[in-house]
C-alpha cells in the first residue's frame, strides 16, 4: 500500500463568520500530483496553508508526512517546499543569498541543480531580486523549490506571472520532478489546460467544500459530453448516468454526464438517437461543466 503523505479529516477553517473551508477529508499518497482547482475564494490557498501548518484549523486536522500540521517538526518541514503568493523574499536579496538560505533549510538541497536552473534562464547569481521581472523572480523561486529536493511540493498558483511557453516548461518540470523523485505535489491553478498534462488526481473545491475528488484517468473514462438537438426536447438518461452540467448553444444542447462504475461512452451510446454526438471531455471542459454550467 502506498504511503499516505497528506491526510485531512473533516478539516475546516472559519475567518470570522465566513467558512473558508468545511469538512474536507482527503488522502494523497506518495508520488501523486494533485491538481487543486476551484473558483476564486473556494478555499484552495486555505487548504494548502492548513496542510503546511501556516494557519490553524477551526475543526478537524491535517496530517503532513505523519505529523499534525499544527506541530510540524524540522524533520517534516525540511522535506516540504512551498510556494505561496505573497511569500516573497526581500527585494534586496540576491539569488546567491537565496540559494544559501535554501541550502540551510533543506538538507538535500542540490545547489548545482539550482545554479544550472538559473544559468539556463540567464538569472545571474549576484543580481538582486528587484532587478528581475515578475516572471524571472518566479523562476528563481521555482528553482529553489525544485532544487530543495523536497518530498512534498505545495504550490499555490505556481505559473502566476509566467508566459505560456514558460508555463509549459514549469509543468513539465513538475512532472519530471515527481516522476524521478517520487515526489508528491499539490498544485493549485486556474490554468487548467497545463495542469491536465501532469496531474494524476483532481480535487475540485467549491465554496470551501470538496465538489469532486477523483483520479484523472478514472474521470476521463467516466465523464463524457453529449451533444443533442434542442428539437428533441429534454433528454432523460438511465440511472447509471449522472448529469453533471448542461449548456444550450446554437440550437443544440451540451450535456456532461458521469457514469457510475463504468465507461461513460459505452452507456451513452446505447441511449443515443439520430444526430446525437458523444465526445470525451478534457479537464477544462469538465471544470466548466461543474462550475459554470453545473446541473441544479
Amino acid at each position: 500500500m502506498s504511503e499516505l503523505v497528506i491526510q485531512t479529516e473533516s478539516l475546516g477553517r472559519q475567518f470570522g463568520s465566513t467558512h473558508a473551508l468545511s469538512d474536507v477529508s482527503l488522502s494523497v499518497t506518495r508520488g501523486t500530483v494533485m491538481a487543486l482547482l476551484g473558483p476564486n475564494g473556494s478555499g484552495k490557498t486555505t487548504l494548502l496553508k492548513l496542510i503546511r501548518g501556516l494557519i490553524q484549523p477551526t475543526s478537524g486536522r491535517a496530517m503532513l508526512l505523519g505529523q499534525d500540521g499544527r506541530s510540524l517538526t524540522n524533520e517534516v518541514t525540511s522535506r516540504v517546499a512551498c510556494l505561496f503568493e505573497g511569500f516573497v523574499p526581500p527585494r534586496t536579496a540576491t539569488v546567491k543569498q537565496l540559494l544559501d538560505l535554501q541550502a540551510g533549510a533543506s538538507p538535500k538541497f542540490d545547489r548545482a541543480m539550482a545554479e544550472r536552473w538559473c544559468a539556463k534562464r540567464e538569472l545571474p547569481l549576484n543580481r538582486r531580486m528587484w532587478s528581475f521581472s515578475k516572471g524571472q523572480q518566479r523562476w528563481v523561486l521555482l528553482g529553489l523549490t525544485f532544487a530543495s529536493r523536497a518530498d512534498v511540493l505545495l504550490l499555490d498558483e505556481p505559473a502566476d506571472g509566467l508566459d505560456p511557453s514558460a508555463r509549459r516548461e514549469l509543468y513539465d518540470a513538475i512532472r519530471d520532478h515527481a516522476n524521478e523523485n517520487n515526489v508528491t505535489a499539490v498544485v493549485s491553478t486556474h490554468v487548467i489546460g497545463d495542469i491536465e498534462r501532469v496531474a494524476d488526481e483532481l480535487l475540485l473545491l467549491r465554496k470551501g467544500r470538496i465538489d469532486l475528488h477523483a483520479g484523472l484517468e478514472e474521470l476521463r473514462e467516466q465523464v463524457c459530453e453529449v451533444e443533442t438537438s434542442m428539437a428533441h426536447g429534454a433528454r432523460t438518461w438511465s440511472s447509471e448516468l449522472v448529469v453533471l452540467g448542461q449548456r444550450e448553444a446554437s440550437g443544440s444542447r451540451l450535456t456532461w454526464l458521469r457514469a457510475q462504475g463504468g465507461e461513460c461512452e459505452t452507456f451513452v451510446r446505447k441511449q443515443l438517437t439520430n444526430g446525437d454526438l458523444v465526445r470525451p471531455v478534457n479537464l477544462e471542459t469538465l471544470y466548466l461543466a461543474l462550475t459554470e454550467y453545473r446541473a441544479r
Binding site: A81, C82, P89, L101, A105
Partner: peptide
C-alpha cells in the same frame, strides 16, 4: 510581511 512569511514557508520549523 512577505519577507518574514517567506521564511515560514521555507523548511524551518517554528521553534527553529
Amino acid at each position: 510581511s512577505g519577507g518574514v512569511a517567506f521564511l515560514y514557508g521555507h523548511g524551518f520549523d517554528r521553534d527553529t
